[in-house]
C-alpha cells in the first residue's frame, strides 16, 4: 500500500509538472479510519495528498465524463472497465485521458465493520498480513481481511485494470470465485417472493438518487425519473411501487454497461440491497448475449448492436 501510494504520488507529480495533464483524479485520506475520498489535484506539489488504501471504493470513472481538460485518473479494475464502456459511448475522449492503472486487493466494506463492532466506535485500523486490526477505546480486534471486503470485491474477476497507460505495482492474482454464486438465493425465489423482497428493500428508499449519481454509466442529460413530460413515475418516495419501478428501469438501462463495481450499493444512505438487481442483470446479459461489460474496446454493447442469428440462438 505504501509503495503504491508513493508510486501514485510520483506519477501524478510528474504528469502535472511535465504539463501532460492539467488534473489528476485519485483518492485522498478520508476523515475516518478505512475511508478514502475522491480527490482532484491540479498542482504538482499537491500530489502528496494522493494515497492508496482499503477505502478507495468510489468508481472514479464517474468524474471523467465530458471533461474539457486533459486529465489523468487513478483506476482500479472496475474503474477501468467503466472507462472502457464510457469511451465506447463517446462520453470520454480517450486522447485526453491518461489512465494510471492500479491493481486492486479488494476494498473494505465499513458496513461490515460497523456490524462486527456492534456499536463500538472505530478509532484506528491497520491492515497487515491479511488481517485487519480494528482498534478503539478499550479494544483491539484482528479480523481476516476477506471477511470485511465488499461483496462485489469478493466475486470480482477483474481486479487488475483492463485498460491503462501507466501500470503501477504488480498485478494481483484473479480469484477463481463463481462470480454469480451470491445470486443463488435470489434466483431461487418465486416471482412473488422476489417482488416482496424488492418492495421490502425499497420501502426504505428516500429517492435521493445517490445511486444514480454514483454510477459512472448513468449519464443521461435528463434522467427519466426527473422527466415531467411525460411523467414516468411519481416524485415521492412514499410510493414504493414507483421506487421499485425506478430501480428496475435503472437496472435495465445499465444492461451491457454495468461492470458490477458496487458504487450504487455503497452510495445508498439507507443500505438498500441495490446490487442484487444490477448483478442479476449483469448475469443475464452474459448468459443471453455472451457479453461482459468493459473488457473490450472493440466488442459492441449488446443493446447497441443489431441482433445476429448467433445472438438470437441464445434465446
Amino acid at each position: 500500500m505504501r509503495e503504491l501510494t508513493k508510486a501514485i504520488q510520483e506519477t501524478a507529480q510528474k504528469l502535472l509538472q511535465d504539463k501532460e495533464v492539467e488534473l489528476v483524479v485519485g483518492f485522498a485520506e478520508g476523515s475516518l479510519p478505512l475511508r478514502n475520498t475522491p480527490c482532484f489535484i491540479r498542482q504538482p506539489e499537491e500530489a502528496q495528498r494522493l494515497v492508496w488504501g482499503y477505502g478507495c471504493e468510489n468508481n472514479l470513472a464517474t468524474y471523467l465524463r465530458k471533461r474539457p481538460e486533459k486529465l489523468a485518473v487513478v483506476a482500479k479494475g472496475c474503474d477501468s472497465r467503466s472507462i472502457v464502456e464510457l469511451i465506447k459511448e463517446n462520453q470520454i475522449n480517450r486522447e485526453k485521458l491518461v489512465i494510471i492503472g492500479v491493481p486492486c486487493q479488494g476494498m473494505i466494506d465499513r458496513k461490515k465493520v460497523t456490524r462486527l463492532l456492534a456499536g463500538r466506535e472505530l478509532l484506528e485500523a491497520e491492515v497487515k498480513d491479511g488481517q485487519v486490526v480494528l482498534k478503539g477505546k478499550g479494544y483491539s480486534e484482528a479480523v481476516p481481511r476477506e471477511q470485511l471486503l465488499h461483496d462485489s470485491c469478493l466475486t470480482c474477476q477483474h481486479p487488475n485494470p483492463v485498460l491503462f497507460d501507466i501500470m503501477l505495482g504488480e498485478p494481483v492474482p484473479v480469484k477463481e470465485a463463481d462470480s454469480f454464486g451470491d445470486l443463488a438465493s435470489f434466483e431461487a425465489k418465486a416471482p412473488a417472493e422476489k417482488r416482496a423482497y424488492l418492495i421490502q428493500e425499497l420501502s426504505r428508499c428516500i429517492r435521493c438518487y445517490a445511486c444514480r449519481q454514483a454510477c459512472p454509466m448513468c449519464f443521461c442529460e435528463e434522467c427519466f425519473a426527473d422527466c415531467s413530460m411525460p411523467q414516468w413515475l411519481s416524485k415521492s418516495s412514499l410510493n414504493v411501487q414507483d421506487n421499485v419501478f425506478f430501480q428496475a428501469v435503472r437496472a435495465l438501462h445499465l444492461a451491457g454497461r454495468c461492470v458490477d463495481c458496487g458504487a450504487c450499493d455503497r452510495a445508498c444512505p439507507t443500505s438498500i440491497d441495490l446490487r442484487t438487481l444490477t448483478h442479476k442483470m449483469v448475469k443475464d446479459v452474459q448468459e443471453l448475449f455472451g457479453y461482459t461489460a468493459g473488457v473490450s474496446l472493440e466488442e459492441k454493447p449488446p443493446l447497441a448492436a443489431p441482433l445476429s442469428s448467433s445472438t438470437l440462438n441464445h434465446f
Binding site: K66, P68, E89, N90, Q91, F219, C220, E221, E222, K300, P301, L303, A304, A305, P306
Partner: peptide, 26 residues
Amino acid sequence: RKCAGCGTCVQLCPYSAIRLVEDKGR
C-alpha cells in the same frame, strides 16, 4: 438538447440515417 451523444442509435440505424454532430463542444 437532451441527447447525451452516446451513439447507440447511430450504430443501430439500419438506414445509416443518423450521425453525431458537434454542437457547442458536445
